[in-house]
């Protein structure tokens, strides 16, 4: 077994373990950190395939940006995660059994000699001056231009959907509208009533009474 194969199995084992802990960890912050670990090991797998650009962008985008934001949200919100997952451990034995059976079946099929995985030749190593970024860029903007444009439409849709779902006036919000406050004029707030300094006579008070 070559060195890269050993590294591959170690990274895969860590990846699976981390992914499993993401769904079983009791503390949401721990779950998020395990997700970071699984992204990190996945980028290690890409590195083994000599796809450095994808590996680095996975770390930069997912670990650096998405997960930090996610951790931030998890820490800000006061969610009782145990209450949310009351049914989790009840259903776990059945779901776990099914998952193990499925994984076993898949392993039997793919591991059998008939699957012919051994007939696939090993990947030839890339030359030293091979640029991942250039190859990806060329493919994305020529051959896969249509798919790239569509992916940008998906991103636009995500923006529209996120704004539609989150932007609304909350009834219980006590936030103040700063621009309204700045633009306020004295006449909107204070009503100045001119009245005589002399003691009020009885006829005037009668007039102020609501009419029956």
């Amino acid at each position: 077994m070559s060195f890269t194969t050993v590294v591959f199995y170690i990274l895969s084992a860590i990846l699976l373990l981390a992914a499993f802990r993401v769904i079983t960890a009791k503390n949401p912050v721990h779950a998020a950190l395990f997700l970071v670990l699984s992204f990190f090991t996945a980028s290690g797998l890409w590195m083994l395939l000599e796809s450095e650009f994808l590996a680095i962008s996975l770390v930069l985008v997912y670990v650096g940006a998405v997960m930090v934001l996610f951790l931030f949200v998890v820490m800000m919100l006061d969610i009782d995660i145990e209450k949310l997952r009351e049914g989790f451990w009840k259903n776990f034995p059945l779901a776990g059994t099914i998952a193990i059976i499925m994984a076993g079946e898949m392993a039997l099929i793919l591991g059998s000699p008939e699957a012919g995985l051994h007939t696939y030749p090993a990947r030839a190593p890339l030359s030293a001056d091979f640029s991942n970024v250039r190859e990806l860029g060329v493919l994305m903007y020529t051959r896969y231009m249509y798919a790239t444009e569509l992916a940008s439409v998906v991103l636009l849709l995500a923006i529209v959907a996120a704004i539609a779902l989150t932007q609304r006036q909350r009834k219980d919000s006590k936030a103040m509208n700063v621009s309204e406050q700045v633009a306020v004029r004295a006449v909107d707030r204070v009503r100045i009533v001119k009245m005589a300094a002399a003691p009020v006579d009885t006829a005037a008070t009668d007039e102020d009474q609501p009419q029956a």
Partner: peptide, 25 residues
């Protein structure tokens, strides 16, 4: 006519539908 565009089209449809269902917050 390509698995990639099939999948992106499906996601475009599904994402829009998820948001539409939840539109009534």
């Amino acid at each position: 006519s390509h698995f990639m565009t099939l999948y992106i089209g499906l996601e475009l449809l599904s994402l829009a539908l998820y948001a539409l269902i939840a539109l009534r917050r």
